[in-house]
Every structure is written in C-alpha cells, then in structure tokens.
C-alpha cells in the first residue's frame, strides 16, 4: 500500500483578479522507504502541493482532491485536531530557510523538546535525553551544550541540522524536504544530503525531496516527478529520466544545465519548449 496517495489534487487561491490555480490536478504516490523528487521551477506548484498535504496553506487557498490518503487514512476527512496528530509526527517537513524556520526567541533545545512534549508526551528527563540523542544523530558536536544555543548562535548548516532533528524527532513515516539545501554552500549541501540519505535508509522513512536542482535529484532520488505550472509533465525513475526524458520540458531543463553546455550558448527552456500543454500528455 502506498504511504501517501494523492489523486487529482487541485489548489486554487482567491486573488483580487479571481481564483488562481496553482496546482491543476496532480496525481502522486510514494511507497514506504522510497525517495521521490519533485522537480520544477518557481511557480510550478511543487511546494504548494506538499503544503496542501500538510494542511499549512492560508485560508485563501481551496484544496480539492479525489483522494488524499496517508497510510490508509483519508486526510481530507479528518477534523483539524486529528490531523494535527499526524502532522509533525508521522509526516514532517523541513523548509528552505533554516534560520527563518526556527523561532529566534527560544533555544534549539526547547524547540526540539516541544515536538516531543506535544506528540510523544514524554517527561522532562526523557525529552532532554532524546534531544541530545537527536542532535548526536544529525551530527552536531557537543550536543548537550548546543541544546542551550539560540538559532542565531549557529550557522545555516547547523540550523538545518536542528530542523532535521526536529523533523525526525517522532520517527516519522514520511519526511518532506522543501528545497532543504538551496540556501546552503555546496560543501554543506553535500553534508546535509548525505545526512538525509543516511537517516532515510536507517529509519526506513519515505522521503519527498522538493528541489529545482537537477544535481540534487541525480544524487538522491529513486523516482522523479517533473512539474510545470501546476501540471505534472513527467514521472519516471531517476535513471530513465536522465537517460531518456520523455517530455519536451524535461529535455529542456536538462539541456539548460551548464554542465551539458556544448558550444557558446545554453539552450533555454523557451528555445526548446513549443507548447507545454502538448508535452503534458506524455506523462
């Protein structure tokens, strides 16, 4: 059974110029222990569709789906209180800006322990012990001392590690990483990706990587979904996507990589893409 299954998801936002469709009927599923990458440029609806799963969209958004089930439970039918029991425990998410996602007013220890208090009902001693264990797991040196640090006292890479520690605190079944390394240096990016892959393998989590970086996709994913303007362009396992991309849009994206440059000019997506609607049928 699929861990997360989404059928025909649409998300529209009310704007002053009428409703805007950010996600236009997307099907998505992820198996346990699978790494799925969702690739697309800004405005492709990749983050919005995952925020819809988490229930984190603002009230101006309307989420509709034929089916949205996690582990057999229908997420859309749950009342908010029941849904909150799943979100943050069985499904958790890390975001692009590690420093902005942590609360600057509290120590990182407090923020990690908050998750454990709310979802696991642990007492003070257990929480502290688990927090130290988590920080060790994500590779922060001197974890006991670091629990008393505030986010501004840590580097971007370390903050992202703390975010990961919070996200895996309750041993989630599914971790959604929304551009987890975009704000980080290449060397730190490598460390964070290695850490995510290690944790994914050890804990047997499903992992959804949202990214626009084809290199990150190549280094992490089992299966890839390519999105463009709210529609799914292509879905394939990672090797066939890079070896033999089916849709024009994927081909254009791969050609625009400076790695693949031949000659003086980079082919741009608009050079290669005639009509996105045509290639959409390929998937």
């Amino acid at each position: 059974m699929a861990l997360l299954e989404i059928k025909n998801l649409t998300v529209s936002f009310d704007t002053s110029s009428g409703p805007f469709m950010a996600v236009k009927g997307i099907d998505l599923s992820i198996e346990p222990r699978e790494v799925l990458a969702i690739v697309g440029e800004s405005g492709s609806g990749k983050s919005v569709s995952m925020l819809a799963v988490m229930g984190l969209l603002p009230p101006s958004a309307t989420v509709k789906a034929d089916r949205m089930s996690f582990n057999g439970k229908d997420l859309l039918a749950l009342d908010p209180a029941e849904r909150r029991k799943i979100i943050g425990k069985d499904i958790s998410m890390i975001f692009q800006e590690p420093i902005a996602s942590l609360n600057p007013c509290f120590t990182v220890g407090y923020q990690i322990e908050e998750v454990l208090r709310v979802h696991m009902g642990m007492d003070k001693v257990q929480r502290r012990a688990r927090a130290v264990e988590l920080l060790t797991l994500v590779g922060i040196p001197e974890p006991t001392e670091r629990l008393n640090s505030f986010p501004h006292q840590m580097s971007g890479g370390q903050c992202q590690r703390v975010m990961i520690a919070m996200a895996i605190a309750c041993n989630p079944k599914l971790l959604i990483a929304d551009e987890p390394t975009t704000a980080l240096d290449v060397t730190i990016q490598k460390q964070i990706l290695d850490l995510l892959m290690k944790l994914q393998a050890e804990h047997g989590m499903g992992l959804i990587m949202i990214t626009h970086n084809m290199g990150v996709v190549a280094e992490t994913a089992d299966r890839v979904v390519v999105q463009y303007k709210g529609t799914k362009m292509e879905e394939a396992d990672v090797l066939s996507l890079f070896e033999n991309p089916k849709s024009n849009y994927t081909r254009a994206l791969l050609a625009a990589l400076p790695d693949n440059a031949t000659g003086d000019r980079l082919p741009t997506v608009s050079d290669m893409l005639f009509e996105p609607a045509v290639s959409g049928a390929a998937s």
Partner: peptide, 15 residues
C-alpha cells in the same frame, strides 16, 4: 567532490 553530478554514469554508480 561536493558538487552534485547530474550525469547518467554517476546516477548508475549511486544506484
């Protein structure tokens, strides 16, 4: 070494 590689050979090696 840290730069992600997006070519088919390195994907094959990783898999």
């Amino acid at each position: 070494a840290a730069t992600p590689r997006a070519d088919v050979d390195s994907i094959k090696a990783r898999l």
